[in-house]
């Protein structure tokens, strides 16, 4: 059992163990959608929202699986839960708040196969978090992802006009930028860490 306190866990999952920069999760959409701040912000918000909800739901489902001794099914169950939750959220948001749907809607289907969501569920299982820890970890990871993608989009906007060697344009320079961001974020790691 993890003996970190909740605030420590939250802080660690936002900064030192950032799900994107330390664990490389959610890279695909991170690179594809980080071209401008507005859509990066929208995607970040959607990921935070979905990640928080799905890890909590998956925690409950995992407890159920443990009771039935079916934990080897966890992968398949997690991904189906994620797909179902995303689908339901899409419908609910559409009904309740069309304005929010307009800003989040197009990103929601992308999120089903975002590695960060699945990764958070798996980390939750492996590290054996209890419910409050799961909530802190889910929220922290989502926020960490959000911060990272907005920061990257801002930097990419700046380096757009920089004279970059031709072969390095696009994904190449983006990866180098992410590398520097990873170094900056791991700078916090003397303070606190989750393994």
């Amino acid at each position: 059992m993890n003996d970190l306190n909740l605030f420590g866990l939250f802080f660690a999952s936002v900064f030192t163990s950032n799900i994107l920069l330390a664990n490389f999760l959610g890279m695909c959409s991170f690179i594809a959608i980080s071209k401008d701040i507005k859509s990066a912000n929208g995607l970040g918000m959607a990921v935070t929202f979905v990640l928080f909800i799905t890890t909590a739901v998956n925690w409950g489902i995992l407890e159920l699986l443990k009771m039935l001794d079916l934990t080897y099914l966890s992968f398949i169950v997690f991904i189906i839960v994620i797909a179902a939750v995303v689908q339901m959220l899409e419908m609910i948001i559409d009904r309740v708040s069309p304005a929010l749907y307009m800003s989040l809607g197009i990103y929601l289907p992308l999120i089903t196969v975002n590695c960060a969501i699945m990764g958070a569920a798996l980390f939750m299982q492996i590290r054996d978090y209890n419910l409050p820890q799961t909530l802190a970890f889910g929220l922290g990871s989502g926020l960490g992802w959000w911060i990272a993608i907005v920061a990257l989009a801002a930097i990419r906007g700046k380096i757009e006009k920089a004279p970059i060697p031709q072969g390095l344009q696009g994904p190449g320079i983006t990866l180098i930028t992410i590398g520097f961001m990873a170094m900056a974020f791991t700078g916090f790691s003397g303070m606190i860490a989750v393994q």
Partner: peptide, 22 residues
Amino acid sequence: VTPASAFFLLAGIIWAAKALMN
């Protein structure tokens, strides 16, 4: 050993591959 190096190396490989291809 840190995650950052993986990004740098991958960027280097992308650069090298594109340079060769182009």
